[in-house]
């Protein structure tokens, strides 16, 4: 009697182990790597870059990639369970999404920025924790992109450069939706060209956009245009 019971338990444990290991074998990752660029150069923090007669140095660049989802050849959608990623060039540039071995990725969708629901709700944790400094302190809403640094040229030295891009309310909502075809591979790299983003209307904004509105929205559009996917 006890023997039988013991054997059953053993079979059960072996099966359990099997299931777990198969799960690990079949469960894989799709990685999305973010590569910031300044024109043709790779952008690194605290290095000078030239834009016309100005020299720009970036101190911090942080932004939100959210609502990541993948689609396979059968149009089957896989929504990532963690759906907010704070990309911080000081800390993290890669997102990992769990997929099944058999899943062949054909489409990648994600948003640049946070949606209105997230913005109007109460305090949130993890990557959305207000201690990351990505929540506007004087109004409601997340900053979708924070890019701070300094600008120098012949007449001014070390003027500050602050782009705090966001806003979720109509008509100045700034979230951007992106969608790329992907080869059946387990990784992709997105390049974001900050030269293109800043150049778009640098004269008008004078290297400062710090609240939601027309300028912020225009810059959000430039961000979308500047993003390319490579594999």
């Amino acid at each position: 009697m006890t023997n039988l019971w013991f054997q059953n338990i053993r079979i059960f444990l072996v099966l359990l182990l099997e299931i777990i290991s198969i799960h690990f074998l079949l469960c894989q990752e799709f990685s999305l790597h973010v590569k910031p660029k300044f024109g043709s150069e790779v952008l690194e923090l605290n290095r000078p870059y030239i834009l016309g007669s100005d020299t720009l140095t970036f101190h911090h660049i942080k932004f939100y990639i959210t609502n990541v989802s993948l689609q396979d050849s059968n149009q089957k959608t896989l929504n990532d369970t963690i759906n907010y990623y704070l990309i911080d060039l000081d800390i993290r540039k890669t997102i990992h999404i769990k997929i099944q071995e058999s899943y062949s990725v054909r489409q990648l969708k994600f948003s640049f920025g946070t949606d209105s629901l997230t913005n109007e709700d109460g305090a949130k944790g993890g990557d959305l924790d207000p201690m990351h400094g990505m929540y506007w302190t004087w109004q409601t809403g997340y900053i979708n992109l924070k890019c701070d640094g300094i600008v120098s040229n012949e007449t001014k030295r070390n003027h500050s450069m602050n782009f705090h891009i966001g806003g979720y309310k109509f008509p100045y909502n700034s979230i951007q939706y992106l969608n790329f075809p992907v080869n059946n591979k387990k990784f992709a790299e997105i390049e974001i060209d900050f030269k293109q983003i800043i150049e778009a209307d640098v004269r008008e904004q004078n290297y400062t956009v710090m609240s939601p509105g027309k300028k912020s929205q225009r810059m959000a559009h430039s961000i979308k245009k500047s993003i390319q996917l490579y594999q």
Binding site: A123, T137, T140
Partner: peptide
């Protein structure tokens, strides 16, 4: 009426240079 949720109101005085002049991360 600029802030829509009480949870996040506290960020304003904590970070305001003329009020408490801190950063949320440093208070944490």
């Amino acid at each position: 009426g600029s802030i829509l949720h009480l949870d996040l109101q506290a960020l304003s005085p904590i970070n305001h240079p003329k009020e408490m002049a801190e950063t949320t991360a440093n208070v944490v």
